[in-house]
């Protein structure tokens, strides 16, 4: 079955995006990438420190690079980082992170939407990282974001899909792909996201913090694939029900 995920002008066969932070050793990254089957990998940007080697030597050729703007506290800082990322010659994708609460590390929806608007105008393909908030998501999409990336739970928490209902709303409402980001600790949680109809999942800490990151990467790859296939297969029934809901095709309309 051909299930191609088209995003940002690319056609992907894997719906797992992986990160490059927090590994025991960056030498693991190529193995993780291979085991996961992922085709998109995120990186951050920092000043070069003495002796710091950077991450690019560990990124397998052929993977799509998704730089993020982590460290940006305002829309303007995010824009600056995005420009730097593009200047590195790795494409025009940018994942916007605007965070100015260093304790909670929750994304600033206003700043994110604002940065999205500015960067779309400069020709970037913008992946905004957001709280699963319908209004922020809409603002980003109206500004031209190629997707929305709602968090499943606080970043790095490995706490799983705590925002399920809200993400479900986004999946229902958004006309762009919903890529679940942050907080997914287990393959089953990634699978659940995909079963719900998410277009992709981004997993970093869940893989990097595993005892065997390579094996966990493979597990996530399979889980995302399984969840996607389950979603496409269509579940026997839905579980949501609202009293008095009016159906688009009433079952009792034939009665007088």
């Amino acid at each position: 079955m051909d299930d191609i995920f088209e995003i940002g002008g690319e056609k992907l066969s894997s719906r797992l995006f992986i990160g490059t932070g927090k590994y025991r050793s960056d030498d693991l990254i190529p193995k993780v990438a291979e085991a996961s089957g992922s085709q998109v990998i995120t990186v951050a940007m920092r000043r070069v420190d003495d002796g710091g080697k950077g991450i690019m030597g560990h990124i397998p050729a052929g993977m799509h690079l998704l730089p993020n703007t982590s460290g940006a506290r305002t829309a303007e800082e995010a824009v600056r980082l995005a420009r730097i990322a593009r200047a590195a010659g790795c494409g025009n994708w940018i994942k916007i992170e605007v965070i100015n609460d260093t304790l909670r590390l929750l994304p600033d929806g206003y700043g994110t939407a604002k940065a999205t608007e500015m960067l779309v105008k400069e020709g970037f393909v913008v992946f905004p990282y957001i709280n699963p908030d319908l209004y922020v998501a809409r603002a980003c999409v109206e500004a031209g974001a190629c997707c929305v990336m709602p968090l499943a739970s606080p970043i790095g928490s490995n706490r799983g899909l705590r925002t399920r209902e809200m993400i479900a709303v986004l999946i229902d409402e958004m006309k762009v792909p919903v890529i679940v980001d942050a907080g997914i600790g287990k393959p089953s949680e990634a699978c659940e996201c995909m079963e719900m109809g998410a277009s992709a999942c981004l997993v970093n800490t869940g893989i990097a913090s595993a005892r065997d990151a390579v094996l966990m990467a493979e597990a996530f790859g399979k889980a995302v694939d399984a969840g996607r296939k389950a979603y496409l297969a269509g579940f026997g029934t839905g579980r949501s029900f609202a009293e008095g809901a009016s159906a688009s095709s009433p079952l009792t309309g034939f009665l007088r």
Partner: peptide, 16 residues
């Protein structure tokens, strides 16, 4: 008055 809602729920359960 809830006949349609009952029917929808019945369909959901029957499909399940």
């Amino acid at each position: 008055p809830y006949l349609e809602a009952m029917a929808q729920r019945a369909r959901e359960l029957t499909t399940r």
